[in-house]
Amino acid sequence: MTYGSATTAEHVTEYFEHIYKGRASRALIQDFENRYRLVGHSPLVEITESQASHLQELLGDAYVVRAGMRHSAPFIEDAVAECKAAGATSLIGVILSPQFSSFIMEGYRTAFIEAAAKHGLEEGDVVAEPWGTEPHFVELLAERTREALEKLNKKYGVSVPIIFTTHSLPKRVVEKDPSYLNQLEATIDAVRKRLDPGLLWYAGYQSAGHTPEEWLKPDLVDILADLHKQKTSAVLIVPIQFLADHLEVLYDLDIAAKKQCEEHGIAYHRIELPNTDPQFIEALASIVKKSEMQ
Rank of each mutant, 00 (worst) to 15 (best):
G93V: 07
G204D: 14
T211A: 15
T232E: 12
G40E: 11
E46Y: 11
S42R: 08
E82V: 06
G120D: 11
I237G: 01
A267K: 11
Y202S: 06
Q230R: 15
V160W: 03
H119N: 05
K21L: 01
C261H: 06
P274T: 05
A9C: 06
V191D: 00
A285M: 11
H18P: 00
V160M: 04
T8M: 00
L169F: 09
N34K: 15
A190M: 03
I271H: 01
Y3Q: 02
D245H: 05
T7Y: 12
A267R: 09
T276W: 11
P74L: 07
V160P: 05
P98Q: 02
L224Y: 09
A73F: 01
L44C: 08
C83R: 02
G120C: 08
S233W: 02
H246T: 02
T187S: 14
S233D: 09
S159G: 10
T133D: 10
A128V: 06
V65R: 03
L199G: 03
G4F: 01
Q241N: 12
G198R: 07
K290N: 14
K290S: 14
V174Y: 08
K289Y: 12
S50K: 15
T166S: 12
P274A: 06
P170W: 13
R35G: 07
R66V: 00
A283T: 05
V126Y: 15
T166F: 07
G265D: 03
L59T: 11
E262L: 14
L253K: 06
A73T: 13
R192C: 14
F103I: 11
Y36F: 15
A190F: 02
E46K: 15
L195P: 06
T166M: 09
H167M: 04
A24P: 00
V235M: 12
V94D: 00
G120S: 10
D61A: 15
L200Y: 14
V12G: 05
I92F: 00
R109E: 04
P212N: 09
Y20P: 00
T187W: 01
G157C: 10
Y36Q: 07
V158T: 13
T165W: 08
M105T: 10
I95A: 01
G107E: 03
Y251A: 02
E122N: 09
T13V: 06
H18Y: 00
L243E: 00
V173S: 09
H71E: 05
W201S: 13
E213L: 12
I76E: 01
V65C: 05
D78Q: 03
Q279L: 13
Q30P: 08
E248R: 04
E134T: 15
K217F: 13
R144M: 14
G87S: 03
K229V: 12
K217A: 11
W215H: 07
E175C: 04
P130M: 05
D277K: 13
I162M: 09
I92P: 06
T48D: 05
W131E: 09
E77P: 02
S72F: 01
D125R: 15
Y36I: 05
E262S: 10
D254L: 07
